[in-house]
Write a protein that binds this DNA or RNA. Structure first.
Lengths: 115, 115
DNA sequence: GATAGCGGTTTACCAAAGTATACCGGTTTG
DNA sequence: CAAACCGGTATACTTTGGTAAACCGCTATC
């Protein structure tokens, strides 16, 4: 159970997974990533990237020579171990969506009386 | 991506998964469940169970004849489809814990300079 | 010389999530 | 008759997550 909570703490929230998915197709720069992850503010992106970084999921590359300093973010190798988790969540999400469509919404909320 | 968010919305938060895990080994009554899910308040348990119920993951059985009314909660069939998801999260959580143990905490926060 | 882009930080604010505590009517147990 | 258990609800509060907008130094472009 603790492992499950660890995972959820790391991936929970509105933005962590969208950011990771945004990095799947190769490294991106900050603004580039912000455009990709629609709706996120710079503050959020900055904060979330920091958390992903200290957890080893994302690596931050700083090109110090250039001016202005160029910063690039990439999925770390450890980050790629998330693929199966993302797939599991996605698969279940789709399945659940289908389930909810077909289920009579009323029945779900109705109390089941037992003799 | 939408499916992933759907799943996360449903399973996110501090209590949803602990409650579901608490119901895996058979149906439980309200107080019984509250004791099992250590630390949860009655208000939270009540609210979370409602949400799980309208999503078809948990079924609520009311024994109306008895007095006082007895209420039992059980994992619905659709709830059991979560097992693979829980396993994936748990597996990754363990793996990540091991990873963090071995990784020098400093290195993770350190900026990577590029020539 | 103004404008726009870069990679953010700062401040202020708001809403959702979660906690703490007390309370309810009814019932069994001591 | 008191205490404890049942299945919750009500009220009030704090904490966390997230939004909005302005601002920073620096640089390349028009």
């Amino acid at each position: 159970m603790r492992a499950v909570r660890d995972a959820l703490d790391l991936l929970g929230g509105k933005w962590k997974l969208p950011i990771i998915v945004g990095l799947v197709h190769g490294p991106k720069r900050f603004k580039q990533l912000q455009r990709e992850v629609a709706g996120i503010t710079a503050k959020m992106l900055s904060k979330e990237l920091k958390e992903l970084e200290v957890n080893g999921l994302v690596t931050r590359y700083v090109q110090a020579d250039a001016a202005p300093v160029a910063v690039t973010y990439a999925l770390a190798e450890h980050g790629t171990t998330l693929y199966p988790v993302i797939e599991a969540l996605q698969g279940w999400g789709q399945q659940h969506r289908r389930f909810i469509m077909h289920a009579p919404a009323v029945a779900l909320a109705e109390p089941v009386l037992v003799a």
